[in-house]
């Protein structure tokens, strides 16, 4: 009798000990296989002579070598550089300005904040499509202006090889600025009021207050905004597909759209895989140090 209760209690303690690990493992296993396993497979493919279907002839760095000689890939990289830098800088500026405005304890903040955030809740594919109509000279802004009698008005960036990439910046900035605002607003609200009061007592002007105390304290918010915006920029796919389809020609191709079209319309799986690996590595290079620092700090 005594022994059975003993083993019963023993079993229970052992279960208590093991249960947490046991229930954690399915999630871990899923991610291990479906993310890292699959990424490993993609990396492996990038070193093979796969074309339409995976094939396992090892070709070393050949695909990478050829990738960087493909003109479209270089166009995509240039576009990414233009898009990402404008997107990050403009979103940060607008987001910070909006956050400072909202931080003045203005009337109706509770209604305004969701309004600023609304675009981010929408799908990139919807906003992209809507912006496409709006920017299309035949039906959108330009046409409307003509109908209203302003005959000389032109706005055809979306059809212009040189300018089309900026239409993607416009749509993306509209979508994300409010979200960046929320990040900065949280940062501003986290600043200790005592410090600000002390500085004001010492006769600091508003400008000095922002420049010397508030902005430096927002450093973590700047960092988060940078990491989040840059990974969104590198991953960008839906918005481009909806807004320009990568065109005109391939004037607005980004790495993700390049990867997709090069694989499935040109049957160059090896080169496509190489481009995916480059994107993975770029994001990892930005993200890993950030997440690492973030977690260490929160201890």
């Amino acid at each position: 009798m005594a022994t059975t209760t003993d083993t019963g209690a023993d079993f229970r303690t052992r279960l208590q000990e093991w249960l947490p690990k046991l229930v954690l493992s399915p999630s871990l296993a899923i991610m291990l296989v479906f993310v890292y396993g699959f990424i490993a497979f993609t990396i492996y493919l990038s070193f093979t002579d796969s074309r339409m279907l995976p094939s396992f002839g090892w070709v070393g760095w050949d695909n990478y070598d050829r990738l960087f000689r493909v003109r479209e890939w270089n166009v995509a990289l240039t576009n990414l550089a233009i898009f990402a830098s404008l997107y990050i800088v403009i979103c940060t500026l607008i987001g910070l300005t909006l956050a400072i405005l909202l931080d003045q304890k203005i009337r109706g903040e509770g209604v305004l904040r969701p309004i600023f955030l609304y675009p981010m809740a929408l799908s990139f594919i919807v906003t992209g499509t809507a912006w496409k109509w709006f920017l299309d000279p035949a039906i959108g802004l330009e046409n409307t202006m003509h109908l209203w009698g302003w005959e000389s008005f032109t706005f055809n960036w979306i059809k212009d090889r040189e300018m089309a990439i900026y239409t993607i910046v416009i749509a993306a900035v509209w979508q994300s600025s409010g979200f960046v605002m929320a990040m900065f607003l949280a940062g501003l609200r986290g600043i200790d009021n005592e410090i600000l009061k002390a500085a004001q007592m010492d006769g600091a002007s508003n400008f000095q207050l922002y420049r010397r105390i508030i902005l430096p304290q927002l450093r973590p918010a700047f960092l988060s905004a940078f990491v989040i915006l840059s990974h969104l920029a590198i991953k960008s796919y839906d918005l481009v597909i909806a807004l320009t389809g990568g065109g005109p020609g391939n004037a607005t191709a980004l790495p993700a759209t390049f990867m997709y079209s090069y694989t499935f319309t040109r049957n160059q799986m090896g080169i496509g895989a190489a481009s995916a690996v480059i994107m993975l590595m770029t994001i990892a290079a930005i993200m890993v140090p950030y997440l690492y620092a973030e977690l260490r700090e929160k201890k």
Partner: peptide
């Protein structure tokens, strides 16, 4: 950290498999 990092990776990385 490891879990979160996976969410930031681009979808094209696992497109083939």
């Amino acid at each position: 950290l490891w879990m979160l990092s996976t969410k930031m990776l681009p979808a094209v990385g696992v497109l083939y498999p």
